[in-house]
Write a protein that binds this DNA or RNA. Structure first.
Length: 539
RNA sequence: GGCAGCGUAGCAUAAUUGGCUAAUGCACUGGGCUCAUAACCCGGAGGAUAUUGGUUCGACUCCAAUCGCUGUCACCA
């Protein structure tokens, strides 16, 4: 077997949004990032070169004012918040390949070059923008959406301000037809389907140009040749994806940025910012003559105990607290399994604990633990030298297992995590049933050693396969399982999947080689306990 | 208000183009087993599939109305 055969698969580039640094990271940002990380990990493990981009969006009047209130320069404010994002990503085992910040020097160069290109197309012009402006939202409001006393409905604590100013506009209206053709000829471009319909309806109604500059905002990039204007947040922020692709040693040019990974295969976003990614962004790229991303996926929102989360309701879910309390794997597992990507999903602490304990401790963890126990008792120093070929085709577990790799790949490549978990849990549950039905303890007493060995092989291999398939979701647990089976694997090693024996062979069922020197059996996932004290504190 | 979508056991989800007794997991409950993390296995209970009417040999599925919920209707990372 050639262990060093390189593989050559198409690359995959994906992004999360660049998160706005007006506050500490919230659970919604964590949710998006966990999904993106799982997708990125799956592609890497399957042998694809991956570029996973995340980062922060740092400009705008809102940041400027927050910093002023705290008596610090905006850059300092951003640095602090950015650290907390990076800290959280580390706690959640997020493996990004590029972390991009819109306050970076090189980003300014990219933005200016892009602006220049769009400008040369005649897609930028100066005009007058009048209206009520909410600094909190950083946008103009229609009279009808305001509360009676001129307060913004979202930021009820501050009045909107009347603005009458010159703004630069982007000629979005010019791209209506091209966008419609894009949606029509690429049905997968906007996912899920329901959101595609919304966007298409929106575009069909006609597109207005949108303003891309502000005056009296110092925290941002000046418009080339007209420095009293600052480039507005969207034009700036979306381009952060492109800046992220620059290599350290590259001269900072648009051409260099897009030379390797561009265009993106996937922009994973929350449904609130779908329009910017599915309408404005492709139009901007069309104008600049750049290729379009393959897909924009707008996922749903999270609720807590069935209610919207919000500071005013005081029911936010703090991701730092959650990960400190329960660990990254449990959280990653729950949010990917129990929330249907695309739909809104709910977090309920009791259900969270029940599900995670049932699946990871009772079913999967205990399955490994009980079979490791039997291996020790029944196969002392006689380790089964069995492989897939020795196992009857009508073995109930093998029958299920042999078709799994295909389903797992389908599930990952279509982001159908429900399907993924259903398949794995069916395998695990059938292994538990298989043990109970075939009673290896009785076979052992009868002296049917070979039978016992086959049963244990089938089960342990199924656990291995499950660990491999779930490694993009629960890397720590998968590491522990592999360790228990005698492999020294690190699923946090980004290079792991880049060799054929891993990315191809381990995806198959029937690969297990039981190492005679197994470590002591120990539980791979301790059951979570509901924190009663903390829970009772809350009304 | 216009447009779009949704309503299935306590909870979360399934049911190819209408077709076996509406399925699965969690939670609940009776039993079994002993290899195991009080685990696992078998069984049970729990449903007018939101309501009403219609089409059909047959409706969770199609049609209509009603009630309830959600999204969207221009610049909310």
């Amino acid at each position: 077997m050639n262990n060093n055969q390189p593989i050559n698969k198409p690359s995959f580039a994906l992004t999360t949004p660049l998160y706005y640094v007006n506050g500490l990271p919230h659970i919604g940002s964590a949710y998006t990032t966990m999904i993106a990380d799982a997708i990125a990990r799956w592609y890497r493990l399957s042998g694809h070169p991956v570029m996973f981009v995340t980062g922060t969006d740092e400009h705008g009047q809102k940041i400027q004012r927050t910093a002023e209130q705290n008596g610090i320069p905006p850059q300092e404010h951003c640095d602090t918040i950015v650290h907390s994002f990076q800290d959280l990503w580390q706690k959640l085992d997020i493996q990004y390949d590029s972390f991009t910040r819109t306050s970076a020097d090189k980003h300014e160069i990219i933005v200016k070059e892009f602006f220049q290109r769009v400008s040369e197309q005649g897609d930028i012009y100066l005009s007058q923008q009048q209206g009520w402006y909410c600094v909190g939202c950083e946008e103009f409001k229609e009279e009808r959406e305001l509360e009676e006393d001129k307060h913004c409905p979202i930021h009820t604590n501050q009045k909107v301000e009347w603005r009458d100013e010159e703004n630069y506009f982007f000629r979005l209206s010019r791209y209506q037809q091209q966008l419609e053709e894009l949606y029509e000829s690429n049905p997968e471009f906007i996912q899920p389907q329901s959101r595609r319909n919304e966007v298409m309806n929106f575009v069909k109604q006609g597109l207005q140009d949108f303003s891309i500059s502000r005056i009296n905002v110092s925290w941002g990039f000046p418009i080339p040749d007209d420095p009293k204007h600052t480039i507005y947040v969207w034009f700036d922020a979306l381009l952060g994806y492109v800046t992220a692709l620059l290599e350290e040693e590259d001269e900072v040019t648009l051409e260099n940025a897009i030379k390797k990974w561009y265009p993106f295969n996937l922009h994973l976003i929350g449904k609130d910012i779908l329009r910017f990614h599915a309408v404005y962004w492709p139009a901007m790229l069309l104008s600049a003559g750049l290729a379009l991303p393959k897909q924009v996926f707008g996922h749903g929102f999270l609720t807590k105990d069935g209610r919207k989360m919000g500071k005013s309701l005081g029911n936010t879910l703090d991701p730092f607290e959650l990960v400190d309390k329960y660990g990254s794997d449990a959280i990653r597992y729950y949010f990917l399994k129990e929330v249907d990507l695309g739909e809104d999903g709910d977090f309920n602490e009791i259900r969270f604990i029940n599900k995670v304990n049932a699946d990871l401790a009772n079913d999967l963890g205990n399955l490994l633990n009980r079979s490791r126990g039997m291996l020790k008792k029944y196969c002392t120093n006689i380790f089964p030298s069995i492989n897939e070929v020795n196992i009857d085709a009508d073995n109930p577990v093998k029958q299920i297992a042999m078709v799994l790799p295909k389903h797992i790949r389908e599930a990952y490549s279509s982001y159908n995590f429900n399907f993924l978990f259903t398949n794995i849990l069916t395998l695990i549950s059938n292994c538990n049933k298989y043990i109970d039905d075939s009673k290896p303890w009785a076979l052992f007493k009868n002296g049917d050693q070979k039978e016992v060995e086959i049963i244990l092989y089938v089960v342990l291999e199924s656990v291995r396969f499950s660990a491999f398939a779930l490694a993009p979701i629960i890397p720590k647990i998968s590491n522990k399982i592999y360790h228990q089976l005698g492999y020294e694997f690190d699923f946090n090693n980004k290079e792991l999947g880049s060799k054929i024996p891993i990315s191809e062979e381990h995806w198959q069922w029937g690969q297990l080689n039981i190492n005679p020197n197994l470590p002591e059996a120990e539980p791979i996932f301790a059951k979570l306990q509901l924190d009663y004290d903390n829970n009772n504190k809350k009304p």
